[in-house]
């Protein structure tokens, strides 16, 4: 009986971890992508939600080296867009309106 509670807690933690890894979300708030970097498994669908009252973008690559893989426009608060990452790799991204805003998705 001693181990029931800790094991249950571990099971809940594992399940929760898998659940979030399956559909990770990134908030765009106070001109920051959070969390970042985000590690996901191949096939994961990542969703960005804008919490600022201004347009932000989620643009693949870096300002002087765009990859063209994705370019999401999130015009205002509550706007939400997703990208499915099927291939392993590191995917940096930025906001095209505020180019110092940077984020990264790592697909394992």
């Amino acid at each position: 009986m001693r181990y029931v509670v800790p094991l249950a807690a571990v099971a809940v933690w594992l399940f929760a971890d898998l659940a979030t890894a399956d559909a990770p979300t990134v908030a765009i708030q106070l001109f920051q992508f959070a969390p970042s970097p985000v590690a996901v498994e191949a096939g994961a669908r990542v969703t960005w939600t804008n919490r600022d009252d201004i347009e932000h973008t989620v643009t693949a690559g870096e300002p002087d080296r765009r990859t063209g893989r994705f370019d999401l426009r999130l015009p205002g608060p509550g706007a939400s867009e997703s990208v499915t990452f099927t291939e392993r790799g590191v995917y940096p991204y930025f906001c095209d309106r505020h180019r110092s805003m940077r984020g990264e998705i790592r697909v394992n």
Partner: peptide, 17 residues
Amino acid sequence: TQDFGAFLQSANPNLPK
């Protein structure tokens, strides 16, 4: 000015954009 207003509003709801 809109971007600046949005930043401060996100930081502090007492500062309308």
